[in-house]
C-alpha cells in the first residue's frame, strides 16, 4: 500500500514534468498560431521550417547558434584546461582564491552577469554588440565548467607517473603532452561537452549582448513574446528538443555503463 502510494506520487510528478512537453509536441502537428488551439493534423509547420518564408531566418539562427557554441567551446576548453593545470600547481591559498573566483559566474544571477558585460562593452571598451561580445560572454560562463571538470582529474592523478616520465628523460613539454593531458582527457572532454550544451542553451547572456546576431534562443524569444506563436516555431522547438533528448540519452547510457553511480 505504502509502496503503491509512493509510486503513484512519483508517476504523478513525472506527469507534471512531462505534460507540457508532450502538449507542445502534440500541438506542433497543427497549423495554428493560437496557443492550445487544434486545427486538425498537419505536417505543414515542419515542412515550413525548410520551405516557408522564415526558413532563411531559421537557418541563419541555427548556424549562428552552432558556430557560436563551437567557437566558445574551443576557446573555453583551452582556457579552462590550461587554467586548471596552472592553478593546480599554485600554493593552496592562491588556488583556493582563484577557484572561488571561478565560481562567480556560476553562482551569480545570469542577468547580473549579462548586464555587467553589456555595460563593460558599451561604456568602457566601446565594443559594439555582435559576434565579439557574444563570444566573450559565452566563454566567460563556459570556462568555469571546463575548469570544474578538469580540476578533479588533476587531484585524482598520481603525481608519480608524471615525475616518472620526467625521470625517464621526457622533456617537460613531452611529459605534458604524452602523460598529463591523456590522463586528464576525460575531464577535458566532459568539460567541453558541458560548455557546448550550456552555450547552445544560453539565452540571458545572449539577449543582452547579441546586437543584430540572431540565435535560436533569441529567435524563439522574439516570436513568443507576442500573443500568438508561429506554427513553425513550435515545430522547430520539437525538433531541437528531440535532438537534445537523443544526445542526452546517448551520453548518459555511455556514462552509466562506465560509471553507474554518478549522475
Amino acid at each position: 500500500m505504502k509502496k503503491t502510494l509512493s509510486v503513484c506520487f512519483v508517476v504523478l510528478a513525472l506527469t507534471f514534468i512531462y505534460a507540457p512537453l508532450l502538449v507542445l509536441f502534440i500541438f506542433s502537428f497543427t497549423d495554428s498560431s493560437v496557443f492550445g488551439q487544434w486545427n486538425g493534423f498537419s505536417l505543414q509547420p515542419y515542412a515550413e521550417i525548410f520551405t516557408g518564408s522564415r526558413s532563411g531566418r531559421i537557418f541563419t539562427a541555427v548556424s549562428n547558434t552552432f558556430l557560436l557554441a563551437i567557437i566558445s567551446t574551443a576557446i573555453s576548453t583551452v582556457l579552462g584546461t590550461l587554467a586548471a593545470i596552472g592553478i593546480f600547481n599554485m600554493r593552496s591559498k592562491t588556488r583556493k582564491l582563484l577557484s572561488n573566483a571561478n565560481q562567480l559566474p556560476i553562482i551569480n544571477a545570469e542577468i547580473v552577469t549579462a548586464v555587467g558585460l553589456m555595460v563593460l562593452f558599451a561604456s568602457l571598451l566601446g565594443i559594439k554588440s555582435g559576434w565579439l561580445t557574444l563570444i566573450i560572454g559565452h566563454v566567460s560562463f563556459c570556462t568555469p565548467y571546463v575548469f570544474l571538470s578538469v580540476m578533479p582529474r588533476l587531484y585524482q592523478m598520481d603525481p608519480n607517473v608524471y615525475e616518472a616520465a620526467l625521470d625517464l628523460g621526457a622533456t617537460p613539454t613531452k611529459a605534458l603532452r604524452k602523460v598529463l593531458i591523456p590522463m586528464i582527457k576525460p575531464g577535458i572532454i566532459s568539460g567541453a561537452i558541458l560548455a557546448f550544451t550550456i552555450s547552445l542553451d544560453d539565452f540571458v547572456i545572449t539577449i543582452f549582448n547579441n546586437g543584430s546576431v540572431e540565435t535560436l534562443s533569441t529567435y524563439i524569444w522574439s516570436d513568443s513574446k507576442r500573443g500568438g506563436i508561429d506554427p513553425t516555431t513550435k515545430a522547430l522547438s520539437v525538433v531541437l528538443f528531440i535532438i537534445v533528448l537523443v544526445v542526452l540519452i546517448l551520453v548518459n547510457i555511455k556514462k552509466s555503463k562506465t560509471n553507474p553511480k554518478e549522475i
Partner: peptide, 19 residues
Amino acid sequence: PMWINMLLRTLGTKTFLAL
C-alpha cells in the same frame, strides 16, 4: 528537462496552460 532550453519548456507550459 533541465537540459532543454528554458524558452522551449516555457513554450510548452504556455501551450499546456492555454489548453
